[in-house]
């Protein structure tokens, strides 16, 4: 008869309490960091030492009266186009969500058309619209005209720019608002309907605050894009930031320094907008944690 013996392996290492954890090391990551640091240092060194940046000129013009007043025009254009663009966009979004196939199709057509036309083409077009319609008449459609105004008075360069930016922005805003509304759980609408809450209040009080959570990040992108997009209206000689720096470097030939003036201002304004975005998003995050 054989005997079975069970041998228990004796622990050869020390007791578990003595074991230390050694983190894994990644030498390549350190190499990557070193390369990037060298590149950054080179860039900073260039900024400080290359006389081509011409910081004294930058400093002279950065807060000059001409630049600051042009900055005001840029802010105005951004503000008007944001408010009007999102207002028209909201109407278009409601049309696209309506039960009427006709309204849906019209809104779809608008979005299709204005997303297809380059902004710069539109702005030059509105600037020149008085060739197409020298006079604008107000009255009963297909009936008598009550009064007329010269188109040029209504479509000042600034007016043409605002209209162009607004119509362009509205097409994008409409899609952003629509996607936000569609992202709200349909159960929310059913609950609101079951409680007999009037339609408009359902939208304002139940749907919109929830839609805002997905609308806001994209909308903020749009506003920032718009802020920089206003530089396009320089093609119709409106005295906004980018046009103004072009005028100045056309005179003194300090191109790089003046481009930096505009760049730094755009960066500052974008940063402020990002900060505003952060706080607005926090407001609409109520109840999500």
């Amino acid at each position: 008869m054989g005997r079975v013996t069970l041998s228990v392996p004796r622990p050869t290492t020390s007791a578990p309490a003595d074991l230390r954890v050694v983190p894994a090391r990644y030498p390549l990551r350190w190499a990557g960091i070193a390369v990037v640091l060298v590149l950054l240092a080179q860039f900073a060194h260039g900024l400080a030492t290359n006389p081509g940046w011409d910081w004294p000129t930058f400093a002279a013009f950065f807060a000059s009266g001409a630049v600051v007043s042009a900055l005001g025009v840029t802010l105005q254009l951004t503000a008007y186009a944001t408010v009007l663009g999102f207002a028209v966009g909201a109407v278009l979004a409601v049309m696209r969500l309506s039960h009427s196939r006709f309204l849906r199709t019209v809104a779809w057509g608008y979005v299709w058309a204005f997303r297809s036309i380059p902004l710069i083409v539109q702005i030059i077009f509105w600037f020149n619209v008085s060739y197409l319609y020298p006079q604008l008449g107000f009255g009963i459609p297909f009936g008598p005209v009550l009064f007329t105004v010269p188109t040029q008075d209504l479509f000042s360069p600034l007016g043409a720019a605002v209209i162009g930016l607004t119509l362009h922005q509205a097409a994008y805003s409409a899609e952003i608002i629509r996607s936000g509304v569609l992202a709200v759980d349909p159960g929310q609408l059913q609950a609101a309907a079951a409680l007999g809450i009037p339609r408009f209040r359902q939208f304002r009080r139940i749907v919109l605050p929830q839609a805002m959570r997905s609308i806001l990040p994209t909308a903020a992108n749009e506003v920032i894009g718009l802020l920089k997009g206003t530089s396009i209206v320089s093609v119709v000689a409106i005295n906004e930031l980018f046009y103004q720096v072009q005028v100045i470097y056309g005179r003194n030939a300090r191109v790089v320094a003046l481009l930096m003036v505009a760049t730094v201002w755009y960066v500052v304004l974008t940063s402020v907008l990002s900060l505003v975005q952060h706080y607005v998003e926090r407001h609409y995050a109520k109840g999500s944690r």
């Binding site: 759980d185 159960g187 079951a194």
Partner: peptide, 15 residues
Amino acid sequence: SAIGFVFQNFNLFPH
């Protein structure tokens, strides 16, 4: 508004 309705998924307004 004369008929109360309670849903399977509550559908409370989260905000």
